[in-house]
């Protein structure tokens, strides 16, 4: 075993056991490893067992067989305080507490380190403030948690997990309630924490695109509980996403690294333009209304983008129509009108 390993699973079977007789295996034969300074994203379709795996790895739920080793010691054998100094968590359930400032919440992270009344030493205070600063929440320090937005609250909860000073942080869907800029911000924070403090970070997420762009490694669980690991780019090239998430009505685009809405083909287009942002978004717009790029020089429709006085002008040509449009809306309207007539 490599010396950098913080968490290791050996031949792990996860699932539920009800009334001692009924056993529901979700995934078996798992051999996984989490290393220092590594950000790992756990992805998988709904109901694939992401939460069960997280619960088993954090010791909330016992494995059906096999073992989870935290720093070379079985997770169940750790004393609760010792475990808390090794691993901290950020849960999905939103925290609802009144009259608590961000400082108070983050200070709770010092729980396993303080004395019986929870008195904060000068060192504790510094650790708390630097945890808050490292997630970029310095201006929130003395604000009440119930006055914060979801994104701000998530930062505070991550700071709390940091203040616990673990070597491993486990986050259950930390980006779930956030808008896209805040999702990206959260991932950026986590990645920089993993790099700068050489902690291991494991998080589960539904944001595949974000996971592919930011994780050092991905753990993918498919619908049947099979787990595939690897670095994101290898996994994209192997085409595993399409089969792991195989649902009708969504297809994985290996170029963009995300799921796209399948196109109902209406025709083909030829696009004549220089490499530019306008070219990309004209391409997307045509795809959206059901036109795919033609193989040769000629498609069912031909669109040329020209610049007139610095502004783009779209020239459309079909068998029956030829006109110039000043916006993509006009272009799409022209094509749709043409479709209805033809």
């Amino acid at each position: 075993m490599s010396r950098a390993a913080i968490l290791t699973c050996k031949n792990l079977t996860i699932g539920y056991q009800n009334q001692k007789t009924i056993t529901r295996e979700i995934s078996k034969g798992l051999n996984l490893q989490l290393n220092r300074g590594e950000l790992v994203c756990l992805v998988g379709p709904n109901g694939s067992g992401k939460s069960t795996l997280i619960r088993t790895l954090t010791g909330i739920q016992p494995p059906l067989s096999g073992e989870v080793l935290l720093l070379d010691k079985k997770i169940a054998d750790h004393r609760s305080e010792e475990k808390a100094k090794t691993m901290s968590v950020v849960l999905t359930t939103p925290v609802q507490a009144g009259y608590m400032t961000a400082f108070d919440i983050v200070a709770l992270g010092r729980f396993p380190h303080t004395n019986w009344v929870g008195r904060l030493t000068e060192d504790d205070t510094e650790i708390i403030l630097s945890a808050i600063a490292s997630v970029g929440a310095g201006d929130l320090t003395y604000r009440f948690i119930h006055e914060m937005s979801d994104g701000e609250r998530q930062k505070v909860m991550i700071a709390r997990a940091l203040a616990q000073e673990p070597v491993l942080m486990v986050l259950d869907e930390p980006t779930a309630f956030l808008d896209i800029p805040h999702k990206i911000e959260t991932m950026r924070i986590l990645r920089s924490v993993a790099r700068s403090t050489s902690k291991a970070i494991l998080l589960s997420t539904h944001d595949l695109n974000l996971a592919i762009r930011s994780a050092d490694r991905l753990w993918i669980i498919d619908q049947h509980g099979a787990l595939i690991t690897g670095i994101p780019e290898d996994l994209v090239l192997s085409g595993i996403f399409g089969s792991a998430f195989g649902i009708h009505g969504a297809s994985f685009d290996p170029v963009r690294g995300e799921f796209t809405i399948p196109i109902e083909k209406k025709g083909t287009f030829a696009l004549r333009a220089r490499k530019s942002v306008e070219r990309i978004w004209t391409w997307y717009a045509l795809e959206r209304i059901g036109y795919l790029p033609a193989d040769g020089e000629r498609g069912d429709i031909t669109v040329t983008i020209r610049k007139v006085d610095g502004k783009p002008v779209w020239e459309i040509r079909t068998d029956t129509v030829a006109r110039e449009c000043s916006s993509l809306a006009e272009l799409i309207e022209t094509i749709s009108a043409n479709d209805r007539e033809g």
């Binding site: 100094k85 968590v89 009344v117 929870g118």
Partner: peptide, 22 residues
Amino acid sequence: FFLTKSLNALLLGEQYAVSMGM
């Protein structure tokens, strides 16, 4: 008075309190 520390941890809920070593 002996319970104050744990009561503070419980403000975040049972699961967080346990994860912090309570």
